[in-house]
């Protein structure tokens, strides 16, 4: 089973990296989101698969029963999802602002725009 999971995560990561190597900034953002999702599943897998009951102590008992899933990676993944969401959203907003200001979706064109204000260049940066 883990083999199938591993292959799926590998595919998700491959697609994410492939999209991050694109020129369209929004595809880069989406690639980032894919990679973040993939990483979350990796953390989850690090806690090992197997038991499928939720990690909840049932009424009347005082400790987690056999057959309950590993709670630790769940806690880590849960916060990772929320943080990943806010950071991806921040990245999207950044991309949006860049697009709006520079008038292009092309990451390469954005780099070129930056080079006009190149700190290493001899010409002073000109304002638009």
């Amino acid at each position: 089973m883990i083999l199938l999971y591993a292959i799926t995560v590998g595919a998700v990561m491959a697609a994410g990296v492939y999209m991050m190597l694109d020129r369209n900034v929004f595809r880069i953002m989406l690639g980032l989101a894919l990679v973040a999702t993939g990483v979350n599943l990796i953390i989850f897998l690090a806690g090992r698969l197997g038991p499928v009951d939720p990690a909840i102590i049932s009424t009347g008992t005082y400790a987690l029963m056999e057959g309950a899933a590993n709670p630790l990676p769940q806690a880590l993944v849960l916060t990772a999802i929320v943080i990943g969401f806010s950071l991806t959203a921040l990245a999207c907003v950044l991309a949006y602002e860049a697009t709006r200001t520079l008038g292009t979706l092309d990451a390469d064109a954005m780099t070129a725009a930056r080079d006009e204000g190149d700190p290493f260049g001899s010409e002073p940066a000109e304002t638009r």
Binding site: A6, G10, A11, A14, Y18, L21
Partner: peptide
């Protein structure tokens, strides 16, 4: 038109898969 991107992506995916299996 993007063979290098594809190679990098597939390499990274394979590395991920193998890492997960090794972790397991």
């Amino acid at each position: 038109k993007r063979p290098r991107s594809a190679i990098a992506a597939i390499g990274f995916g394979a590395a991920t898969t193998l890492s997960i299996l090794a972790m397991n």
